[in-house]
Nucleic acid binder design. Structure first.
Length: 881
RNA sequence: GGGCGAUUAGCUCAGUUGGCUAGAGCGUCUCGUUGACGUCGAGAAGGCCACAGGUUCGAGUCCUGUAUCGCCCACCA
């Protein structure tokens, strides 16, 4: 048709050329900041998300891109809906993780953190963090994230640290934080404690070492162990008091091999008669159960290891195992087995699979170790008579917090119910210092923000500060409110807390989500967020976890550069559902690059070729696409509201690609007027949360941007309108579509050359409708002409197709193959009869008529009628052949 | 040992409270394309919805069991 030559709009969308520019425009507009949004008065509702702070360890991976895509889509949607939308970005200092990275960097220069000393080391860390924070910030911006940089936060910021201190002191004063001497998880590589959930249990091949200890006055005790080196710390043997085999032994003494230490034989019902030999060796210093057992029986606790899990020299000297002093735990194990064998105490070794705890940060084998640490008491009842644990459970149970998907409720409750006191002190240099001070004279503990001048008990001036830092999750647990200025009573806090949505990975539901709930309930007495949306892991196309060592990593920056940030975002959103992992491939991203280019060209066409709209005289296709748009608005709005972004994306794609591009635009080419501009404007808005760069750019190119402030990012969300006869218009258009498809099919089947223009003959009761769209039918079916009438004779030498109420004939002249045509009709008839039988069977079923809803029955009846009609027509054809 | 999830076209997945002659994208095959787009268009092939029972007028959808894969939790020496 009479399309103008598109000169000034390139045919290919080049994201690289527009993305950075667009981001700058947004930043400059100030719209990321809810205080600077237009129409402030009408923005009553607030919507807030706190971005899960990436670790300050360096580079963002594709999983981060996923969270950014989801959160940005939601923030943009709510902003456009006229809410005060706030999204606060930030980073987490990630104590152990970051310290490890910097330690590794130092090691490359041959230095250790001890070489530098605490102060200089922390300076190094700060330098490193500053750098990676910048990298992270750039990456977040590259993805188009509309977060408020004026409120950017970092867990070690002054005010956030103040929040940490405040909570710590308050908890201590409430008796919820205490210092205790007990068994903790110890990582000898990180040289620090870890919380229970920071230990990964992995099944490993190990051995069962069968050993015997001699008993004084005769006999031996046999038992097995998986960690023979811990025998150096054994302080008792225990049997079940009811175990008849050992009754005579209770109260006697065993002389241990190697150390010659004398240890008692005790009785405790904890020991299971039926397990192993029924004898348990007790190592209170290196096993959780043994520690408790030791406490009960007042046994000595021997710590055989130093902080790096080497046999401790002092302990070795004192407890008589000097031969092993300085040995690493695994070397010690070997030597001990060797020595036991030499002396005849090793009975046998059997291979054995068992679970071994590993450090979640450095993957070293964990060692249980007794030490004096800080804990949060999760079971102590506080105000309201409920414990932290109970309050956290209540928050979800009451529905104040909705977890998406729901099945994670169970996981959450299970974890919470089994939660033990949380060890929060870390022997890490980098992090929030625990605000505690010790008196050098009377060992009084003082918990307060500033160093006391003297001991409050004995007035001594010898004051020592606690050297330990806090678990990094302690500070991130405050994230939803520390970022809003708490403990100050800020306007932000009032306005935006509880936050509307927490969007994060299901892998940190315990580490973080649970902690936030505990902390917010405690500090503010309210939930930290109303909804938690848990996304899954991004895996490679085969479902394998991405990792640098395998080399299957998709770098978000690389693919964004190649395919555009919008395409990258969409590839992470479509086909993804909460709680499930996502398989991603570069081809998938490329397919969304194609989609963004399609949108670009649809827009390009609309901008350059749309005709004025004739509101009074809309055609069937006009009404049809408007009705479709209306449905789209309704559906997509609901999807965004329910955070069903995948569905939103799919509906959008279907509308733009199939309905709009393949049908409406093609049809509109044959019309004198169209509604393209209106449609375009609407789809830009609807697509904006998912494809922000592209849509904002087109918004400007299309001239919808009336002035510099008039950006798409703050355009208001379209409302669904009442369209009269939407359904019947859709039916009318379906007739037109069916007719066109029928001709296309015939042409394909009879291999009528595409450029050969032919005249089709079309008979239909709905000839009026078809005639009204005749130009479209001709154009889309590649016809030179069509005769559209109510009914008529079957033309000679023509192929025919029958669809519902329409008969379509195209001349095929010499190509006419009677046999083939006959076969086709027979096949069609057979299919129709088969389907009719299915419907008939249903309708002949008395119970169906009786029990199925009337609506369904009527539908079936209608179907039967239609099928009968079709069969009648087909039979007639066959007869006339 | 306990819990959870998955199993639908070659591949990735949709399939809302049970009404489906089971859909989409990618891939494959055939054909086409000098005005929006080859990052494109038209058409086609391809599925006893893991298996076995049950509930129901009706089951991909609900229940029970089985199998395979995956994940999470758990201190048994």
């Amino acid at each position: 048709m009479n399309t103008k030559n598109p000169k000034n709009i390139p045919t290919v969308y080049e994201p690289k050329k527009v993305e950075d520019k667009i981001y700058k425009i947004w930043e400059k507009s100030g719209y990321f900041n809810p205080d600077k949004l237009p129409n402030k008065k009408t923005r009553k509702k607030s919507f807030s998300i706190m971005m899960p702070p990436p670790n300050a360890t360096g580079v963002l991976h594709i999983g981060h891109t996923l969270m950014l895509a989801i959160q940005d889509a939601e923030v943009r949607f709510h902003r456009m809906r006229g809410e005060k939308a706030l999204w606060i970005p930030g980073t987490d200092h990630a104590s152990i993780a970051t310290q490890n990275v910097v330690e590794k960097l130092l090691l490359k220069e041959g230095k250790t953190k001890e070489d530098l000393g605490r102060k200089a080391f922390l300076k190094e860390v700060d330098k490193f963090v500053k750098n990676s924070k910048n990298t992270i910030k750039t990456q977040i911006k590259k993805m188009g994230s509309s977060c408020d940089w004026s409120r950017e936060a970092y867990t070690l910021d002054k005010n956030l640290s103040e929040a940490v201190q405040t909570v710590f002191i308050k908890m201590y004063n409430d008796g919820l934080i205490y210092k205790g001497f007990r068994m903790v998880n110890w990582c000898p590589r990180c040289v620090s404690t870890l919380a229970d959930d920071e230990v990964n249990h992995k099944e490993k091949d190990g051995n069962l070492y069968y050993i015997k200890y001699p008993i004084k006055d005769g006999g031996f005790f046999f038992f097995f162990t998986t960690r023979p080196e811990t025998m150096l710390g054994d302080t008792a043997l225990v049997v079940n008091p009811k175990d008849e085999r050992y009754l005579d032994f209770i109260g006697r003494t065993s002389v241990m091999p190697l150390t010659q230490r004398e240890i008692p034989v005790l009785a405790d019902s904890y020991v299971e008669t039926g397990f192993g030999t029924g004898v348990l060796k007790v190592t209170p210093g290196h096993d959780f159960n043994d520690f408790n057992l030791g406490k009960k029986h007042k046994l000595d606790v021997i710590d055989i290891f130093d902080e790096r899990a080497k046999i401790d020299a002092k302990s070795a000297e004192y407890h008589n195992f000097k031969d092993y002093a300085g040995l690493d735990r695994f070397e010690a194990r070997k030597k001990i087995i060797n020595d036991l064998q030499k002396e005849g105490f090793l009975v046998k070794i059997e291979p054995h699979k068992h679970n071994v705890g590993h450090c979640y940060r450095c993957d070293s084998v964990m060692e249980p170790k007794v030490s004096s640490q800080w804990f949060v008491d999760v079971n102590k009842k506080i105000k309201g008579g409920r414990s932290l644990k109970q309050k956290a459970i209540e928050a979800v149970k009451s529905g104040k917090i909705e977890i998406i998907p729901k099945r994670f409720d169970k996981t959450y409750f299970h974890w919470m119910n089994n939660l033990n006191d949380w060890c929060i002190s870390r022997q890490i240099w980098f992090g929030h210092k625990i605000p505690a001070y010790y008196c050098g004279d009377c060992s009084e503990i003082m918990v307060q923000a500033k160093k006391p001048a003297h001991c409050k008990k004995c007035r001594s001036k010898k004051i020592r500060a606690e050297g330990d830092t806090l678990d990094t999750w302690f500070s991130s647990g405050l994230w939803t409110f520390s970022t809003l200025g708490w403990p100050k009573k800020t306007k932000d806090l009032k306005e935006f807390h509880p936050t509307s949505l927490m969007e994060t990975g299901y892998d940190i539901i315990f580490f973080w989500v649970a902690r936030m709930i505990i902390m917010s309930e405690y500090a503010l007495g309210e939930v930290p967020f109303k909804k938690v949306y848990l996304h899954g892991l991004v895996r490679d196309e085969k479902g394998v976890k991405m990792s640098k060592s395998i080399g299957n990593v998709i770098d978000p920056l690389v693919v964004s550069e190649k395919y555009g940030a919008d395409a990258t975002r969409l590839s992470l959103i479509i086909g993804n559902s909460p709680g499930n992992d996502l398989k991603l491939s570069e081809e998938k991203i490329a397919s969304f690059r194609n989609f963004s280019n399609k949108i670009w060209n649809v827009s390009r066409y609309a901008i350059l070729n749309s005709k004025p709209t004739n509101v009074k005289d809309l055609t069937i296709p006009d009404k049809w696409i408007l009705s479709k748009l209306n449905t789209l608005i309704k559906e997509i709005t609901a999807h965004y509201e329910k955070i069903e972004l995948s569905l939103a994306g799919e509906k959008l794609r279907e509308f733009i690609w199939s309905d709009l591009a393949d049908w409406y635009i093609e049809t509109a080419k044959t019309q004198k007027s169209d509604v393209l501009k209106d449609i375009l404007k609407n789809i830009l808005v609807l697509a904006h949360p998912l494809l922000p760069f592209l849509t904002e750019h087109i918004w400007e190119v299309a001239g919808f941007k009336k002035d510099p402030k008039n950006l798409l990012i703050v355009e208001s969300w379209p409302k669904e309108t009442n369209i009269k006869n939407g359904k019947s218009v859709e039916k009318d258009f379906a007739l037109i579509k069916d007719t066109i498809v029928a001709v296309r099919n015939l042409r394909a089947e009879y291999k009528v050359e595409p450029n050969k223009k032919i005249t089709a003959i079309i008979y239909s009761k709905e000839e009026k409708i078809l005639n009204s769209a005749k130009p479209a039918i001709l154009f889309l079916a590649g016809l030179s002409d069509a005769i559209i009438e109510k009914s008529g004779q079957k033309p000679e030498n023509s192929a025919e197709a029958i669809i519902k109420k329409i008969s379509v004939y195209i001349p095929i002249g010499d190509l006419m193959d009677k046999e083939k045509e006959l076969e086709r009709i027979r096949k069609e008839l057979a299919g129709a009869i088969e389907y009719r039988a299915v419907i008939q069977r249903k309708l002949e079923n008395e119970n169906f008529i009786k029990r199925a809803p009337e609506k369904i029955v009527n539908e079936e009846k209608k179907k039967l009628e239609e099928q009968n009609d079709l069969i009648k027509i087909l039979e007639e054809k066959l007869r006339l052949f």
